[in-house]
């Protein structure tokens, strides 16, 4: 579904991703881990098309299509969803309105009719039950005045409603207490289907107790320095990142950062 090859990306003159290769198939959950500043969030933002980053080399195809050539809204319309690390506030616009606007844009891009508000409400309520969240969230303005944890949960609510094919969760676990973490993980797990895929970007192993990954990739200094199964996350939890980061030479050959195991 997603095929990333030798991806390089920079902000201004500063190169942050230095050759990422990664392959994600439908039905899979991949975890991207790594210390602060390793490029995890940059990878998520670049895949979503944030205008602040420039891709300097490499490719990313999504369902066989050149992902990097698409504007961000088209990536979203084709089913790519990013749960933001820092969700943005939109005062005065209710979640329900925002979600329906987004939902309809996605439908329109597929040549489907817009959904009317009543049908949409039924759909949203069903999804809310699925992810076990409070319907009150819908009548509040998008993230305005939300606590950190509420914002993260709201991302999962949006994800549940929009039903993406490829979801990227950017540090959705950071700042969450254990109960909120369970709600978020439960949401992600309930939405898992054989025809979609999830990339979980996280600093801590904790979340992976609840969302069990098929593969774990460790990012350091803009490269994947190790890939493995779910046990790799446990190993990181026990030993920290230093042993991997130190082991990775400053200009490791691309082969070290191979995708898959």
């Amino acid at each position: 579904m997603l095929e990333i090859k030798d991806l390089h990306a920079a902000i201004g003159d500063r190169e942050i991703l230095k050759g990422i290769s990664l392959s994600v198939a439908t039905g899979e959950v991949h975890a991207i881990m790594g210390p602060n500043g390793s490029g995890k969030s940059t990878l998520a933002q670049v895949l979503a098309g944030h205008p602040g980053y420039e891709v300097t080399r490499g490719s990313a195809t999504y369902d066989g299509e050149d992902l990097l050539a698409l504007p961000p809204e088209e990536r979203a319309q084709k089913g790519l969803f990013l749960a933001f690390q820092y969700p943005v506030e939109i005062p005065g616009v209710t979640n329900a309105y925002f979600l329906r606007a987004a939902f309809n844009e996605i439908r329109k891009s597929r040549g489907q009719d817009e959904i009317d508000p009543m049908d949409f409400r039924d759909l949203v309520e069903e999804r809310l039950r699925l992810v076990d969240m409070d319907p009150d969230m819908l009548s509040r303005a998008v993230n305005a005045g939300f606590s950190g944890g509420e914002k993260k949960r709201n991302e999962i609510l949006q994800m549940a409603v929009l039903g993406p094919r490829l979801a990227i969760l950017d540090e959705t676990d950071s700042g969450l207490d254990i109960d909120a973490l369970r709600v978020v993980a439960h949401g992600v797990n309930s939405l898992r289907r054989p025809d979609n895929a999830t990339i979980v970007v996280t600093h801590y192993q904790r979340l992976l107790n609840y969302i069990v990954p098929d593969q774990v990739h460790v990012l350091a200094a803009g490269r994947i320095v190790r890939s493995g199964g779910k046990d790799l996350a446990l190993e990181l939890e026990a030993k920290g990142y230093d042993w991997l980061v130190d082991a990775a030479p400053a200009s490791a050959p691309a082969g070290v950062a191979g995708a898959g195991v």
Partner: peptide, 21 residues
Amino acid sequence: FYCKQRGLSAEHAISLIVSGF
């Protein structure tokens, strides 16, 4: 960007943000 990531065009995003304001 947040709105675009949800599938909205820039113009739609602006009108949404402004009408909220």
